[in-house]
């Protein structure tokens, strides 16, 4: 499975996304990382270009609802029909709203790396 990991918005906290990238690579996933400060348009376009199976967004600045709303719109506009997930500094109370916005999963603050890897493993079975 090929996973695009990205940092949308202006937030520069990339420790978590890089930790996850290492963990996914160690679990034999194919990971493409976009780097910092990508717009939602750039992320969706990169997902198409690299022909990935799933997109992971990492947001720690608190803008997750606004950016995921944009994500939802952009995925529809570009008719890209692959799952996308979100993690970072996400209050547990926002998980439901993020799923409503189209996220296949939202990983709240404190989610263990192992749980996220396990999620992708399960997704692989379904795909």
């Amino acid at each position: 499975m090929k996973i695009l990991l990205s940092k949308p918005g202006l937030d520069g906290h990339d420790v978590g996304v890089k930790v996850l990238a290492h963990a996914l690579i160690d679990a034999d996933f194919n990971v493409v990382y976009t780097g910092l400060r990508k717009s939602i348009e750039e992320i969706v376009s990169m997902a198409q270009k690299h022909d990935v199976d799933v997109i992971g967004l990492s947001i720690l600045s608190g803008t997750h609802l606004i950016l995921c709303n944009r994500m939802n719109e952009e995925m529809t506009d570009k008719a890209l029909n692959i799952p996308w997930v979100i993690g970072g500094n996400i209050p547990a109370g926002d998980v439901e709203a993020l799923v409503q916005l189209g996220a296949t999963a939202a990983f709240p603050t404190g989610t263990r790396v192992i749980e996220v890897v396990e999620f992708f493993n399960t997704l692989n079975v379904q795909a």
Binding site: G9, L10, D11, S61, T63, I66
Partner: peptide
């Protein structure tokens, strides 16, 4: 806030949702 740190004004489209946040 992040727009100021990245050198963007409050009215920049990339600053949406970030103005005064952190």
């Amino acid at each position: 806030d992040l727009p100021t740190q990245c050198g963007l004004d409050s009215d920049d489209p990339a600053a949406l949702g970030e103005v005064g946040r952190v």
